[in-house]
Simulated scan of single mutants.
Amino acid sequence: MNLAEGVQIVSLGILGVLMLASALGVVLLSNIVYSAFLLAMVFASISGLYILLNAGFVAAAQILVYVGAVNILILFGIMLVNKREDFQPVANAWIGKAATAAVCAGLFALLSSMVLATPWHLSSAIPAGEAAIEVIGQHFFSDFLLPFELASVLLLMALVGAIILARREYVPDEEPENEQKVLTLRERPRELVAAASNDLQND
């Protein structure tokens, strides 16, 4: 084993431990903001694994899309909503925790069996090399165009939903009696800036 292989093995171990610890923090911490930041750490660790696999474009896409877009969108949604509710204990909460642990253990066993049963031999296909970005772009706009567009629409829907939930916080608790009810979301009253009228008076 030379120095390069040793560095790769050590980096793989560090990234694996960091990813598993961050993933456990995401599901175990009660503070949702901390969970969102740890989720960004999970995405960054996965990007490091892609770098070890010589998949530079996938690693950059992981950082740009998941850390720079999806995770930031989650943080914006959390901070825009900013709902504070008192904790109410749930009856028989251990049943849900036990079911979650059973599902996680089953998924772990399934993935472990797939890893052990998969023949990890080197493929005989010629690697794309520097033309990998062109090949991926061709697949994005031909074979995977529909999933690519659906993902962008899904992210847009999540952003609009976060904004709507944030605006609901401004609705007063008591509604005026004489106000006509319409199927629109009421906003916080704002002071109108009469900039145009001031400019006309100055002229």
Results as ranks from 00 to 15, higher is better:
A91T: 06
F108Y: 06
G129D: 01
A151F: 06
S112N: 07
M114C: 09
Q62T: 01
F43M: 07
I32Q: 08
S30A: 11
G137W: 11
L20I: 13
V193A: 02
G56Y: 11
P176F: 07
G25T: 00
A109C: 08
E134N: 15
L24K: 07
L156G: 06
R190Q: 06
R167P: 02
P89G: 03
A131G: 07
L18C: 13
E187Q: 15
E179Q: 08
M79D: 10
K181G: 07
G16Q: 04
Q180M: 07
V17D: 14
F141S: 12
A98S: 05
V90G: 05
A91R: 12
S35E: 00
T184S: 13
A21F: 07
Q8S: 14
L52Y: 04
E179D: 10
L185T: 12
A117L: 08
V7H: 05
A109H: 04
G77C: 02
L52C: 12
Q88W: 05
K83T: 09
L64N: 14
D173N: 02
E149G: 06
S22C: 07
M19F: 04
G129I: 09
I133N: 11
P119R: 05
F148C: 10
K181Y: 08
A91L: 11
F76G: 01
G77V: 05
G68P: 00
F37R: 00
A69K: 01
L52K: 02
A98Y: 04
P176A: 05
V103Q: 05
